[in-house]
Amino acid sequence: MAETSHLTHVRSDGSAHMVDVSAKEVTSRTARAQAVVTTTEEVVSLLGQDGLPKGDALATARIAGIMAAKKTPELVPLCHPLPVAKVTVDFQLQVPDAASVLITTEVKTTSRTGVEIEALTAASVAALTLYDMIKAVDKSAVISDQKVLAKSGGASGEWSRDD
């Protein structure tokens, strides 16, 4: 059997388990993530004017992202339930290079483990909600570029994406 001991959620026998974080120090932790919804200039314009048939898409996607961050351990099986202290979901409407919406999220906690998955979940669900809200106008919209942008706190300290 291949060596898997370096993977924190996999035991030496290959079975999955939830990592024991009880010995870790409680620290303030923050993570930022993003997702991008690429669509048409018309849709970006409608988003800016609150002109979509289904209503205020950005407000709906923001609330969905916040709710998703709080529900992350119910969606990701080995994710620890955390006391989420703050969630922000922001949108940047982008034209003309590529008509898109850049979704950025930030999640904060004071806990024994980080909130990267919560930040990614918030960005992903906000993007899915935005797609649902715009699909009547643009069925070909694409969700992409989901990634962690930065994290802080815990034993590994500060980290940010260099690209």
Rank of each mutant, 00 (worst) to 15 (best):
D162S: 15
A136I: 09
G65E: 06
S160W: 06
V95Q: 10
V36F: 01
L75S: 08
L149P: 10
V87W: 01
S45A: 14
P53E: 11
A16N: 05
D132G: 08
A123H: 04
G55H: 09
K24T: 02
T113N: 00
V26D: 07
S111P: 00
L7G: 00
A136W: 08
T38A: 11
D50L: 14
S5I: 14
L130I: 11
V137T: 12
E3W: 06
V125Y: 02
P53W: 05
R62T: 11
E3Q: 10
S152L: 13
D90F: 02
M18N: 06
G114L: 03
V142K: 10
A150M: 15
L78S: 09
V19K: 08
V115P: 02
L149K: 09
Q34P: 03
E74V: 14
I143Q: 00
A31K: 04
V89H: 02
L7Q: 01
A99S: 12
S152Q: 14
A68E: 07
A150C: 09
L120V: 10
C79H: 05
L75E: 08
R29A: 10
D50M: 14
H6F: 03
E74W: 10
A155G: 01
S22A: 13
K108Y: 07
S124P: 05
D132M: 09
T8A: 00
V101L: 04
K71Q: 15
K108R: 15
V36S: 02
P83S: 01
P77T: 10
D13L: 03
K70M: 13
V43Q: 04
I143R: 00
A57N: 02
S5P: 00
E42H: 12
V125W: 01
D13K: 00
V76Y: 05
V44N: 01
P96T: 12
D90A: 14
K151Q: 12
V36M: 04
A69Y: 05
G157Q: 07
V87H: 00
A99W: 07
T40F: 10
A99E: 02
Q34G: 03
A141M: 12
H17A: 07
L102N: 03
A57R: 04
T39Y: 06
E118H: 08
I143W: 01
L102G: 02
L75I: 15
A122M: 12
S45P: 05
Q49K: 15
T88H: 02
M18A: 09
P77I: 12
A33C: 05
G153A: 12
A61P: 06
L52F: 13
R11P: 04
I134F: 04
A33D: 01
V37Y: 01
T30N: 07
D56E: 14
E106Y: 06
D50T: 15
P81V: 06
A119V: 13
D163P: 03
E116T: 05
V10C: 02
S45V: 13
A150E: 15
